[in-house]
Structure formats: structure tokens, C-alpha cells
């Protein structure tokens, strides 16, 4: 379209988006990098400390436990949003009626606000008045196990992670299901006639074909989990103790409660690096998987 393209037209159409993107995303990222090299309470003079904030992380037990908690949070979310969602998408293929309706209903939690979700799960987990989980335990005679799931150190982290998994599971299932629909049916049938088990059909035919979509879903689910903030912040805000503190909630506290802008910026930069590493790992695994197939023929 050389004839349509003039320098003026490109500038007029592109500049507004680029300027806003620079202002709202790119510049603040660079500012965070810069701030992470200082000690600053937001009012007094900024004190240059070079990489001290990053060294401080390694010595900070709360940071280390938050990092571990974030990984658990990530693992639980990936379990629901990638593993369970993929399983459900496969199961949905063999449902004969009402698939469109089922898809729509699976998707519903995605549009509920995190504030409403936090309120909902607070009620579901509650001991007083009894939430549905404790009621169910009571009903099957396991009343002894009833507990305040969010208030108990041992269970709080899992309890805080599940709502986020629940929230986006339907979204990813819908995407994976669309990819599975595009797998040629004759290929599957031919394999079944040759006596391939359902697992073989899935692992040798379906999965290799949907692998790129699966990778997109992995990347979305992983980066969204690593930046997950609202639900843990609203449900427990890190407690009891630091048992549900994630890097994001810890960073927020350091920034807006302790007003320790330098250290908080360093943690924010760390979260960005985490996301980049996660995406890199997923791409590497994806490539390796492809090569493995090539070797097998």
C-alpha cells in the first residue's frame, strides 16, 4: 500500500498510541529501574545506594517467603487454568448437547470483579457463619476438619490461590476448546481405527496441533498469576503472619505503607524479571517439545 502510506498519515495514526504507551507504560518502567537504585521515602533527599536494594532482598526473610508463596500461587493457578482447563476442554468435545451454553456459563466468573470474588470466597471459607465448605464437611461427618481456612497458617495460601484459579479457568478452557475443535477429525478417527487409546489420540494428535495455543494460554496464565494482587490483598493482605504474602502484596506494602520507594521499586523490577523468565522458559519448553517430536518422526 505504498500509495496510501504517507509520512504524515503514519505519524497522525501512530503517534497518539505511541505517546500514551510511552507515558503510561515505558517511562514508568524506566523510572522504576532508576528508583530501585536509591533509598527514598518520597519526601527527603534521594540517597544513591546502587544495587543495595537488590542485595537486601536476599537478606530479607519476608521477601524470600513472599517469593516462595508467589511460586505456590503460580503453581496452583497453572494447575487450574492450564491443566484442568485443558482436561475440561477435551471432555467438552464429547458432550453432545448444549456446548455453547456450557461455554458461556463456564466463562461467567471471568467477568466478576475481584472485590466481589473476595467477598464471595470469604463467605465460602468462613467458619462463622459457616461457609459452604465447612457445611459440606459437617454434612459428610468430617466436621472436625472444619476450620477458618483463611485464618489458619497451614491452609491460607492455598485458600487464597484457588479463587484466582477459579476466576480464569473458564476463559482458558474456552480458548483451548476452540483450538481443539480445529483439530482434523479424520486424523483422530484414523488413529482410533488403528486401535489408539484416547490418551494416545490426545498426546500424539490433538496436543501437538494445539501446542501454539496452549503456549499462549500458558504465557497468559503465568504472567497473570505472577502479577496477581487483588484477591490475596483483599482476602488476607498477607496474613496470618506472612503466610499469604506474595511479592506483589509485599511490594505494595513497602511502597504505600512503609513509603520505602527504592526497595519497593526493586521488588517491582524483580516481578518484571520473573515474568520475562517465565515467558522465556515457556518458549524454550515449547521449542524443545517441537524438536522432540521431530526426532521421534
Amino acid at each position: 500500500m505504498r500509495t496510501l502510506s504517507t509520512r504524515r498519515a503514519v505519524t497522525v495514526f501512530l503517534a497518539p498510541a505511541v505517546i500514551l504507551y510511552l507515558l503510561a507504560v515505558v517511562m514508568p518502567i524506566l523510572q522504576s529501574l532508576w528508583l530501585s537504585l536509591f533509598e527514598w521515602d518520597g519526601i527527603g533527599p534521594m540517597k544513591w545506594t546502587s544495587l543495595d536494594n537488590y542485595a537486601r532482598m536476599a537478606r530479607d526473610p519476608v521477601f524470600m517467603s513472599s517469593f516462595r508463596n508467589s511460586l505456590v500461587y503460580l503453581g496452583i493457578n497453572l494447575f487450574f487454568q492450564v491443566v484442568v482447563a485443558l482436561l475440561l476442554a477435551n471432555l467438552l468435545l464429547s458432550v453432545t448437547r448444549g456446548r455453547e451454553l456450557i461455554k458461556t456459563m463456564f466463562f461467567l466468573p471471568t467477568i466478576v470483579s475481584t472485590v466481589a470474588i473476595a467477598f464471595l470466597f470469604q463467605r465460602i471459607y468462613a467458619l462463622e457463619p459457616m461457609g459452604i465448605i465447612n457445611l459440606a464437611l459437617d454434612a459428610v461427618g468430617l466436621g472436625d476438619l472444619a476450620t477458618a481456612w483463611l485464618g489458619t497458617t497451614r491452609t491460607a495460601l492455598v485458600a487464597v490461590s484457588i479463587p484466582e484459579g477459579w476466576r480464569f479457568m473458564g476463559l482458558y478452557m474456552v480458548i483451548l476448546y476452540a483450538a481443539l475443535l480445529a483439530v482434523p477429525k479424520d486424523l483422530e478417527e484414523a488413529a482410533r481405527i488403528d486401535g489408539a487409546s484416547e490418551w494416545k489420540v490426545f498426546s500424539r494428535i490433538r496436543f501437538p496441533i494445539i501446542r501454539p495455543v496452549w503456549a499462549t494460554v500458558m504465557i497468559m496464565a503465568a504472567t497473570y498469576s505472577l502479577r496477581g494482587f487483588d484477591i490475596p490483598y483483599l482476602l488476607t493482605n498477607g496474613g496470618p503472619g506472612t503466610s499469604t504474602e506474595l511479592l506483589t502484596t509485599y511490594m505494595y506494602k513497602k511502597a504505600f505503607r512503609s513509603v520505602d520507594f527504592g526497595y519497593a521499586s526493586a521488588i517491582a523490577v524483580f516481578i518484571v524479571i520473573e515474568c520475562i523468565i517465565a515467558v522465556g522458559l515457556i518458549i524454550v519448553i515449547l521449542r524443545r517439545g517441537r524438536q522432540g517430536e521431530g526426532a521421534l518422526g
Binding site: 504507551y21 518502567i29 528508583l35 502479577r227 494482587f229 505494595y252 504505600f256 520507594f261
Partner: peptide, 15 residues
């Protein structure tokens, strides 16, 4: 930008 976590812009934008 798709993978950038929003937390990283909070402090600079606040300032």
C-alpha cells in the same frame, strides 16, 4: 507490553 505487570508503574505514576 502484554507481559508487563502493572505493579511496576504504580510508584512512578503515583509520584
Amino acid at each position: 507490553g502484554i507481559i508487563v505487570p502493572v505493579q511496576v508503574v504504580l510508584i512512578p505514576l503515583f509520584i
